[in-house]
Computed example of a mutant assay.
Amino acid sequence: MGALETSKITKDHEGWRLITCIWLHAGVVHILANMLSLLLIGIRLEKEFGFMRIGTLYVISGVGGSLLSALFMVSNISVGASGALFGLLGSMLSELITNWTIYENKFAALLTLVVIILINLAVGILPHVDNFAHLGGFTSGFFLGFVLLVRPQFGYINQKNSPLGFPTGTPKRKYKTYQIILWVIATVILISGFTIGLVLVLKGFNASEHCSWCHYLSCVPTSKWSCNAPSNYCMLSQLGNQLNLTCQSTGKTQTYTLNNPNNTEAIKHLCVGFCS
């Protein structure tokens, strides 16, 4: 159905899943939560920087989240726009940094933004939440912000808009030196990171095997919950009496024809039998 499933990317060469999974969700609550977040964050950014820049940032951040998830969550199936949304959060942080001189109440804005980011990342340690997609999206968006969301200096804008013949003093450069340096560094990191990540994913590299503690970035087990996915957990999609089940633990997919499409107990038994 287009969900992020590493085995299908590596074995069946379905690389398009890195993008399509961004537009899929696990249910009504999932999509409503993500779309509400998109409205709260995206509208402000789009008003300031335009649809093209924010749309590009959104999609690339989503792919960045998919890449990191595919590297660390090899046996899981993932859907959702959370990686792209975290990319917008990351870009807000880098936009504040790269345009630091034009802001008032800089430190208050920085503190508020950091607290919001930390709270959202902390939610990712709950079970069945793909925090690697969040981290990958946030990191991608953070560096993309240095590239796509740079603002010209006020002095340059004033000179550009001054009437012809009006004395403007010493010519101002469009961007400050530190903005250009950050732009170059971020561009190099983005190109290198996406290239290496894509190559590793296509080769079937399992990053979790080389990092014994990294799984704690996505889920921290407590006495209240376990981080192990239940063996009979299924993702499902239903159209009429046609039910498509995907077993979370094995990655297998099967389509069933139901006599009663509304019989949730029967669907649960199908999942248990299919995954066992």
Results as ranks from 00 to 15, higher is better:
Gly2His: 07
Gly2Glu: 03
Glu5Gly: 10
Lys11Met: 03
Lys11Trp: 09
Lys11Asp: 06
Asp12Trp: 11
His13Ala: 06
Glu14Gly: 03
Cys21Asn: 15
Ile22Gln: 02
Leu24Cys: 10
Leu24Arg: 04
Gly27Lys: 04
Val28His: 03
Val29Asn: 03
Ile31Val: 05
Ile31Ala: 10
Asn34Met: 04
Asn34Asp: 09
Leu38Phe: 11
Leu40Pro: 10
Leu40Ala: 13
Ile41Thr: 11
Ile41Asn: 00
Ile41Asp: 01
Arg44Ile: 07
Leu45Asp: 12
Glu46Asp: 01
Glu48Ala: 01
Glu48Thr: 05
Phe49Met: 02
Arg53Gly: 12
Val59Ser: 04
Ser61Ile: 05
Val63His: 13
Val63Ser: 14
Val63Leu: 14
Ser69Asp: 06
Ala70Gln: 12
Leu71Gly: 01
Leu71Glu: 02
Phe72Glu: 12
Val74Glu: 04
Ile77Asn: 05
Ser82Met: 14
Ala84Met: 05
Phe86Trp: 15
Ser91Glu: 15
Ser91His: 11
Leu93Asp: 11
Leu96Met: 12
Asn99Thr: 07
Trp100Gly: 11
Tyr103Arg: 07
Glu104Leu: 15
Lys106Glu: 02
Phe107Leu: 09
Ala108Gly: 12
Val114Pro: 13
Asn120Met: 11
Asn120Thr: 07
Ala122Thr: 02
Val123Ala: 08
Pro127Tyr: 11
Asn131Lys: 12
Ser140Asn: 05
Gly141Arg: 06
Leu149Gln: 11
Val150Pro: 00
Arg151Asn: 00
Pro152Phe: 03
Pro167Val: 14
Arg173Lys: 15
Lys174Ile: 07
Tyr175Val: 04
Tyr175His: 05
Lys176Leu: 09
Gln179Thr: 13
Ile189Tyr: 06
Leu190Thr: 04
Ile191Gly: 00
Val199His: 05
Val199Cys: 13
Leu200Tyr: 12
Leu200Val: 09
Lys203Ala: 13
Lys203Met: 01
Gly204Asn: 08
Ser208Arg: 02
Glu209Cys: 12
Ser212Trp: 13
Tyr216Asp: 13
Tyr216Arg: 15
Leu217Met: 00
Cys219Lys: 06
Ser223Thr: 01
Cys227Gly: 00
Cys227Leu: 10
Pro230Ile: 01
Gln242Ser: 07
Gln242Pro: 13
Leu243Met: 14
Asn244Ile: 11
Leu245Gln: 05
Gln248Asn: 11
Gln248Ala: 14
Thr253Val: 00
Thr253Glu: 04
Thr255Cys: 07
Tyr256Ser: 08
Asn263Leu: 12
Cys271Arg: 01
